[in-house]
Amino acid sequence: MLATAVEFKEVFPRFKDREPHYDCCPSLEDWEKVEKVCSILEVFWTATHIISGSEYPTSNLFLNEVYKVKVLLDKNIQDENDFIRALVRKLKQKFDKYWGERNLLMAIAAILDPRCKIRVIEFCFPKIYAPYDAQANIAKVREALYDLYGEYVTMHYSSEGEKSMDNQVAGSSSGPDGYVEASSSGWSEFSDYLRMVEIVLPHKSNIGIYLEEGCYICDSNSDKFVALEWWKVNTLKYRMLSKTACDILAISISIVASKDTFSAGTRVIDAYRASLSPDTVQVLMYAGDWCRNIHGVKKNNKISFK
């Protein structure tokens, strides 16, 4: 509403000249406040719509948008206008309170975006945190990333061990007439050797190789880049790390549309479906998303599937 009013600010004085009962015409000082407030809210509006997207992964986009908000608040905290300065001070107090503790998930998700990698926290953290906290937080995020990756490697080893035991049990059995199954053949032993050499050993340096390589440079259509698609293509190159990345990037920052955040209307479930179990509701929501994706239908299109 404020942005629309700014476009027609020349109309208000004319309306005042024609309408004698109009006595609340904004002054030049008021318009200056409105323009500054619009410039501040525009950054919040953009960040909200990017983060609350539902057709693409959003966890890897959160850190860069929050960084823009932090820079904006720091820039306007000493504004010459008392009204803007008081407004930004309240916003900054809430922002600093929220970021007093590191959000490891958001930082790790940003690193797992091949366009960002470790550079993203090296760039954003000095602007979000105090100078003496930035390097310490960078080190803790890096440590948490390696620990998380180590847990995935451990789970992989345990699952591979169970599979190996199952294969040994299956391979020891014989069929009728004394026929030995193929699992005990020479090819089976060679396959086990390949698993040891080609899969297990690279896992130890998989995360290091990813971070040492340069960031992925997008073309002009960078807005259409999907991190999960990149990991799908590079699964063979980063076998274990791709599993970690897919689990992290699949986490959405918000499942509520931005317009619903400030809406007092009904949410996903109406009063007639309030007795459904949470699992059933989740399945129905997943099915709806899958149907829309298969048929290329957006959520705001009122098309029913029969």
Rank of each mutant, 00 (worst) to 15 (best):
V37Y: 10
M155Q: 09
I118H: 08
S52T: 15
L41I: 06
L2E: 12
W99A: 08
G161V: 07
A287N: 08
T244S: 06
S304R: 05
D166N: 12
Y193V: 03
K224I: 01
N301D: 10
W231E: 09
K70C: 15
K259L: 07
S39R: 04
P131A: 05
T4L: 09
C38M: 12
M106R: 03
G208D: 15
D96L: 06
D17E: 15
K224A: 11
S222L: 09
S304A: 00
F8K: 13
D223G: 04
S220Y: 09
K163P: 03
K75N: 13
R119H: 13
Q93P: 00
K9R: 15
D113H: 12
A110P: 01
D23Q: 14
W45G: 07
L73W: 10
I121G: 10
I199E: 13
G186A: 01
K204T: 08
Y129G: 01
S275K: 02
K306F: 08
G161E: 15
K243M: 09
P114M: 06
W31E: 04
G296Q: 07
W99I: 03
L105C: 10
G296P: 05
R85E: 11
E143I: 02
M285Y: 02
A227E: 03
K298G: 07
K75H: 14
R142K: 11
S252K: 09
A5S: 12
Y193P: 04
S185A: 06
Y152P: 07
S158W: 02
M196H: 02
F44R: 12
V69A: 05
A274Q: 05
I248A: 02
H21Q: 08
I253V: 14
Y146Q: 15
G150N: 04
V283W: 06
I255T: 13
E19L: 01
P126N: 11
L145R: 02
A110C: 13
V6D: 10
M165C: 00
K298P: 00
Y129I: 05
G100Q: 05
S258C: 09
C246T: 09
P126H: 07
L276S: 02
C38A: 11
F12K: 04
A271K: 11
A264Y: 12
K16L: 02
Q135M: 03
F95W: 01
E212M: 07
R14A: 14
L28R: 12
P57G: 09
S39W: 04
L61I: 06
M165E: 05
